[in-house]
Write a protein that binds this DNA or RNA. Structure first.
Length: 951
RNA sequence: GGGCGGUUAGCUCAGCUGGUUAGAGCGCCUGCCUUACAAGCAGGAAGUCGGGGGUUCGAGUCCCUCACUGCCCACCA
């Protein structure tokens, strides 16, 4: 450790003294550790050498790589991010502590449209504009913006303690990533998989760019369906009536189509119509796409403004006439309507048609209308020249198309193996369904901020030169009169490449050998198609040509960008409403974190994150987990206090075994053997749960263990051993404290992935600033051992004691025994059970506040109304108090009903031969035991009822 | 138009491949400042698992159906 590092460790640990404040205050510790983790570069991962990797594997550990879904640079952390990051951090910390080489890679996305809009807004407020600045200046301006504000979301992430490797942080517009993006584009172009052409695309008139199908959100809306009469040329008063929801587009009609089988129109096919308002002559054509039963059965065809019409136009070689410009205003082709906004033009067109008597019926019509995902402007299908990836096209040399590769990666192969596994599994279906119906991907955007398409247009021969290095002349005719394409690439093109580009692709790097494929992707459903699907397509496509580290060819299973995908839920508000700015119900994670502490919020999210279920985030619950943090804090105070007291009387705790699992010998007291066994079981359960992304189960298991077992029972019992008085046995104190500290330290490690701040603070305090590592995050996770689960005599004895104590406490309550008063108890019990109880009588006396528990013959107990009847004993307090017979009768009645029901159902089952024959022996045995116990209880309860009635 | 979820205590949710008497947190009721913690401790009440049908020795869990509810996908003008 360098001197500087050592100093900072000490500084951080200095406050980690054992004199902890009475109440847990997250604000006092979290910033400090968040900063420390970053400053100490704790989570940086050096690329391992082959030898190091071999060593790792020899210890049956592995590389665990996880890529942070890059938030937009413009982003602010929201609850979804926090859930996402909490889950990733829990898994990464857990894997790291298990001994894996855990690399979590952070970065941000340049987010083309979002960022451009942000900066444009800024320019508007300054009274200028993107256009006024010009492209070059504007892009500079965006970079400047990014330098100032782009780190915000990652800073928030640092505050939340995400254990990422900051040294590897990337930005999708970084030089090296840009080079890779360009290489990918050029390769696809060379492979004939990128083409440029004029097609109908979704166009946002406000953003003034093409957007992909995915960026269009559909909304059901009740609109109108207008019928318009188109006069037939050469036939007086004969019309073809078409139906449309967008009458203004008629100005660009170049045909009317009918179904070839539609009898109504047989005579009209091939005739010519006069397009109203425009006067153009357009043909009536027959196309099977037309559905006779919709509208009038005749469709106006506007190839430049509708994707279906465009397809018809192609089939029938129709002209495509655009009547709108990029802002959705009518253009010169619209004649008298030129310059009007599309909706103004619609109104005018309808008025004019009406005036000419060409407007027919107007009907209410429900249809779904496409809006721009980003700005909610109604999207206009627009004919424009764009760049596309042919995702369904097989490469020239043969082989699978990009989409097919992406399907194979998820489908089970002949052996039932899947290269990529989804959790929850149902998303596989969703993904495959989408991939089965995928269209070519429009990757060009008419923006300035983004990766500019590396294509040059030649003014001479009009051909395109696509190149890795900026060309000086046309590759086809040699002309120097070339200009670069102005479009940039869809943001998802570059982010879809991240799993390969972050590791240095297109170079074949050591990083690529070691870290690719990544192990896991954790993300929300909302970007399954946008990003997850694109990464699978592009990742498989480009990595398949990269040989494995040993030079062998890469199989599909090793060319996937990640081996597993965990899709998490949506975080909703406490009323299950989707959080949205317009509803004003957005919960700011940072505000919540400031109020309750990061650990409490993390724990809340984890405890509710059961796969496949949305999370209704409730502050009430967070409050509960802050209480949990406080509980841990106070347990620490209690422990440290006692270690201190022990030190004062010359008892030193043996700290040599810290960092492992508590070593508890045969002769150790029951509570020590029991808690060690519980810890072992809990460790097994937590590890198993995390392995299946069952965060809620893992969280709840540690919670129950720490609060229920460790604090409520173990700690209370241990108090008995902590006698620092004159004649105290020092060995007992020492041994108890040692186990206590060991268990606590192990529990902290168990909790650490969920509550990294609190556990870090307390862990350093356990070692009084002399910790064996820089962070608890670098210690080993308690794994639990299968062999420790069996032969669990301690648990059985403990359960016996717990049940007795619970009975006694209940009796105290029923009899209204004053809280401070200790009273004797008597019970009728088996000799064996009595021996166990007497051997641990101090525990019972302490926890149940009794002076003694004396065995008595049955008759002594029999007459006592209100005694507790269990399977193992009849027990009662010796305390004069009026018994509330009414309450007692009520309780007995309830109990009777329950027992009768249980016994009856058990009898029914046990009397059933089919059950005895078919059910597994263990189930039958269990039921038999249950039944006989219940029968005893039932008998006892009935008797008690009689006794009660006799009084 | 297709497809996928959900419906369990007053509230928010667990309950994995069907197996003994369905759990947790919050809230509620009762009593306690028992010197780690009142952000606490102890005791307690509370559910015919959305309705109906079926399979099974056995169903909250599997199948069918209905109801309500949420989401995704889709080029009916």
């Amino acid at each position: 450790m360098s001197q500087q590092a050592k100093d900072s460790t000490e500084t951080a640990a200095q406050t980690a003294r054992r004199e902890l404040p009475k109440a847990y205050d997250p604000a006092a510790i979290e910033d400090r550790w968040a900063e420390y983790w970053v400053r100490e570069r704790l989570f940086e991962v050096k690329t391992p050498s082959p030898e190091e990797l071999e060593k790792l594997h020899a210890q049956s550990n592995d590389v665990f790589t996880i890529l942070l879904p890059p938030p937009n640079v413009t982003g602010r952390l929201h609850m979804g991010h926090m859930l996402n990051q909490t889950e990733m951090d829990i898994l990464t910390r857990w894997r790291r502590m298990r001994g894996d080489l855990a690399l979590w890679l952070p970065g941000t996305d340049h987010a083309g449209i979002a960022t451009q809009m942000m900066v444009e807004r800024q320019l508007t407020s300054e009274g200028t504009s993107r256009q006024a600045l010009g492209r070059e200046k504007f892009v500079e301006r965006v970079w400047e913006w990014r330098r100032h504000y782009g780190g915000a979301i990652l800073d928030q992430m640092k505050r939340l303690g995400a254990s990422v490797d900051w040294s590897r942080e990337y930005f999708t517009m970084d030089e090296n990533l840009s080079v890779a993006v360009r290489e990918a584009f050029v390769r696809l172009y060379e492979q004939g998989l990128i083409y440029r052409g004029a097609y109908i695309v979704n166009w946002c008139p406000r953003c003034q760019t093409a957007i992909s199908d995915l960026e269009v959100v559909h909304e059901e809306q009740t609109g109108k369906l207008w019928e318009i009469r188109y006069p037939v040329i050469g036939a007086e008063n004969e019309f073809v009536t078409v139906a449309t929801t967008r009458p203004e587009t008629m100005l660009g009609d170049t045909a009317v189509a009918v179904n070839p089988l539609d009898e109504r129109y047989q005579g009209l096919i091939g005739k010519t119509l006069r397009l109203p308002l425009v006067g153009r002559e357009i043909p009536v054509i027959a196309d099977e796409w037309v559905k006779s039963d919709f509208g009038t059965g005749a469709v106006k065809v506007t190839p430049a403004h509708d994707p279906n019409d465009f397809a018809i136009g192609q089939r029938h070689k129709l002209a495509a006439i655009s009547v709108m410009d990029e802002t959705a205003h009518m253009n010169a082709e619209a004649g008298a309507y030129a310059g009007l906004d599309r909706y103004v033009a619609r109104k005018k067109v309808l008025e004019d048609l009406e005036a000419q008597g060409l407007l027919g019926a107007v009907r209410e019509h429900v249809n779904s209308i496409g809006k721009c995902d980003r700005c909610k402007t109604v999207v206009e299908p627009r004919l424009s020249t764009q760049w596309f990836i042919a995702v369904n096209k097989a490469p020239e040399g043969g082989g699978d198309s990009m989409a097919e590769l992406a399907r194979k990666a998820v489908r089970a192969d002949a052996e039932g193996k899947k290269a990529i596994r989804f959790t929850p599994e149902m998303y596989e279906k969703v993904y495959l369904e989408w991939m089965n119906n995928i269209y070519d991907w429009c990757i060009s955007r008419q923006l300035w901020w983004g990766h500019r398409i590396p294509a040059w247009h030649c003014a001479g021969c009009r051909k395109i030169t696509v190149a890795r290095e900026d060309p000086t002349q046309c590759a086809h005719c040699g002309s120097a009169d070339i200009t670069q394409e102005t479009d940039v690439l869809d943001t998802w093109f570059s982010s879809g490449l991240l799993p390969v580009t972050v590791f240095g692709w297109p170079r074949h790097t050591r990083d690529l050998d070691v870290f690719y494929p990544t192990q896991l992707l954790v993300t929300g459903f909302d970007i399954l198609f946008f990003w997850v699907a694109r990464m699978i397509m592009l990742g498989c496509w480009f990595s398949k040509d990269v040989p494995m580290a040993d030079g062998s060819p890469r199989a599909l299973a090793d060319s996937v960008p990640f081996r597993e995908v965990y899709i998490h839920a949506l975080v909703r508000d406490a009323d299950r409403q989707k959080m949205s700015k317009t509803k004003g119900n957005v919960i700011d994670p940072i505000a919540i974190v400031e109020q309750y502490g990061t650990d409490a919020v993390r724990f809340t999210l984890a405890s509710m994150a059961s796969p496949g279920t949305d999370i209704a985030f409730s502050e009430a619950r967070t409050e509960g987990y802050r209480a949990f943090a406080n509980k841990i804090w106070n347990a620490a105070r209690f422990i440290f206090m006692n270690v201190e007291r022990a030190r004062e009387v010359g008892v030193a705790v043996d700290s040599s075994a810290l960092g492992g699992t508590p070593k508890v010998g045969e002769g150790a007291p029951i509570e020590a053997r029991w808690i060690a066994s519980r810890l072992n079981t809990v460790a097994l359960e937590v590890n198993a749960a995390l392995g299946e992304y069952r965060f809620h189960e893992a969280a709840n298991t540690v919670y129950q263990f720490f609060w229920g077992d460790f604090c409520d029972w173990y700690l209370e019992i241990v108090k008995l051993r902590l006698d620092f008085g004159e004649g105290a046995e020092k060995a007992v104190v020492r041994s108890a404290l040692t186990t206590l500290l060991e268990t606590f330290e192990a529990a902290l490690r168990l909790l650490s992935p969920f509550m990294p701040f609190l556990t870090e603070e307390l862990w350093h305090a356990v070692y009084e600033g002399e910790a064996p590592a820089k962070s608890i995050a670098l210690t080993r996770y308690p794994m639990g051992s299968e062999s420790g689960v069996h032969a669990d005599e301690a648990s059985e004895i403990m359960m016996l004691l717990q049940n007795l104590i619970i009975d006694l406490r209940a009796l105290r309550k029923e009899r209204n025994v004053p809280e401070r008063e200790r009273v004797p108890a008597i019970y009728f019990v088996s000799d064996k059970a009595n021996q166990l109880v007497q051997r641990n009588i101090d525990i019972v006396r302490h926890l149940a506040k009794v002076t003694e528990v004396k065995p008595q013959p049955h008759d002594v107990l029999a007459g006592r109304v209100g005694r507790r009847r269990g399977v193992a004993w009849d027990v009662d307090l010796v305390f004069e108090a009026a018994i509330d017979t009414a309450a007692e009768r009520e309780r007995l009645t309830r109990e009777l009903a329950k027992l009768e029901k249980a016994v009856a159902s058990a009898e029914r089952q046990l009397g059933n031969e089919a059950f005895l024959a078919k059910a597994p022996a263990a189930v039958v045995e269990g039921l038999k035991k249950q039944e006989s116990e219940n029968r005893v209880l039932l008998e006892k309860t009935r008797k008690a009822m009689e006794e009660l009635g006799a009084e």
